[in-house]
Computed example of a mutant assay.
Amino acid sequence: MSPNDDQPRVTTTIFDVARLAGVSHQTVSRVLNDLPNVRASTRERVEQAIRQLNYVPSQAARALVTRRSRTIGLVATGLPDYGPSSIVLSFNRSARAAGYAVIASHPADIEGATLRSAAEMLIRQSVEAIVLLASERGVLDAFDGWELGVPLVAIASETRGRSVRVSLDQYGGARRAVGHLQQLGHHDIAHIAGPAGSMDAEERLRGWRDALLDAGMPVIEPLRGDWTSDSGYRLGCQLLAKRTPEAVFVGNDQMALGFLHAVQAQGLQVPADISIVGFDDVPDSEHFMPPLTTVRQDFVALGQEAVTAVLAQLRDEEAAVLGPMQIPDLVVRASTRSR
């Protein structure tokens, strides 16, 4: 047995061939089905990519060019928090405006078998494409290598696997938040991060760390919550029992709400004793006490961009190149002040 025999095998898909040949997946399917209206030079490029990748087409790949159901599948993982729920709502509205219905699946967990079952259920309903709302890395990894027979668009903070990705710039948003605190004169900036494995949490943590390192400021190991107010309160009490940093960048607004409670429970005041910045700009954040400085994500635009990416994949032409990720805006309120 060779050393790599126990490693998972990655299946080459029709979308890999399309990317290598520089054409749409429908064009590859036309070549596979020996259909007309494919230029000789394009056909040669596709056939060369097929040989180079040792691609063996599946029945679904051969039939892909004729799939027209006007439906899109949506696999939404994670908790129905404000951000994911807003993205799903925007995606549904945008798909409907484009003349597509959406069939949604909300798997109970992110185990590979559960995710595959969700995807297969959508395929059986003849969806033209699948959109994956992925919060954790394991979700993208599970889909990588499956030949679904339809395009896959991932709403995810990191580039993993072979799906087309749309996202807001979590890293840039975090740097914007920390940069605000630095401009106010804060040098000791702590971080309460989201859970390990969350792509959003890791990108925000990376932005916080890089902003501090670039400014020559100390980086103290962050605390990790689970996105809930309870974890923000618990970790806030834990942090403040040891020391009082000048400022804290909190991974989302719900944890920031809990942290505000912890600060008050310790007899401290925001922002007199400590400045706080959150992330997401949930509808209630401007009514926190004090109103929360935070990073506003345009979830509506993200849902729209996901539909745009799907339509680009479904057009019988080379896929449109998506623009650069949007950096979320900083919303300055009363929870931060100058040193």
Rank of each mutant, 00 (worst) to 15 (best):
S2H: 15
R9G: 11
R19H: 12
R19L: 11
R19M: 11
V23Y: 04
V23D: 01
S24D: 07
T27G: 03
N33E: 15
D34E: 14
V46S: 01
V46L: 05
R51I: 12
Q52P: 08
Y55W: 11
V56E: 14
S58F: 12
R62L: 08
A63W: 09
T66P: 06
R68W: 13
T71D: 08
T71H: 08
G73A: 12
V75R: 03
G78L: 10
G78K: 08
L79Y: 14
P84V: 06
S86D: 04
I87R: 00
A97P: 10
G99S: 07
G99M: 12
G99T: 08
A101T: 15
V102E: 06
V102C: 07
I103V: 14
P107R: 09
P107T: 13
G112T: 15
T114A: 05
M121C: 13
R124Y: 09
Q125H: 14
E128C: 09
I130F: 04
L133G: 00
L133D: 00
A134V: 08
R137K: 11
R137G: 11
V139C: 03
L140A: 11
A156Y: 07
A156I: 10
S157K: 00
S157G: 04
T159R: 04
G161E: 02
R162H: 14
L168A: 06
D169P: 01
G173H: 01
A174D: 02
R175L: 05
V178T: 05
L184E: 06
G185A: 13
A190T: 11
A201S: 05
E203S: 11
R209L: 07
G216M: 11
V219Y: 08
I220T: 13
R224A: 14
R224S: 13
R224N: 11
D226G: 05
S229M: 12
G232C: 08
C237M: 15
Q238N: 09
A241V: 10
K242N: 14
E246L: 10
F249D: 02
D253K: 02
L257V: 12
F259Q: 01
Q264Y: 14
Q266E: 14
I274H: 00
I276N: 01
I276C: 01
D280V: 10
D281A: 09
D281Y: 03
P283L: 06
S285A: 15
M289C: 15
L292E: 02
T293D: 01
L302A: 04
L302N: 02
L302P: 05
L314W: 06
R315M: 14
A319Y: 06
A319V: 15
V321F: 07
V321E: 10
L322Q: 10
L322G: 13
M325T: 02
V331K: 00
V332M: 05
S335T: 09
S338A: 15
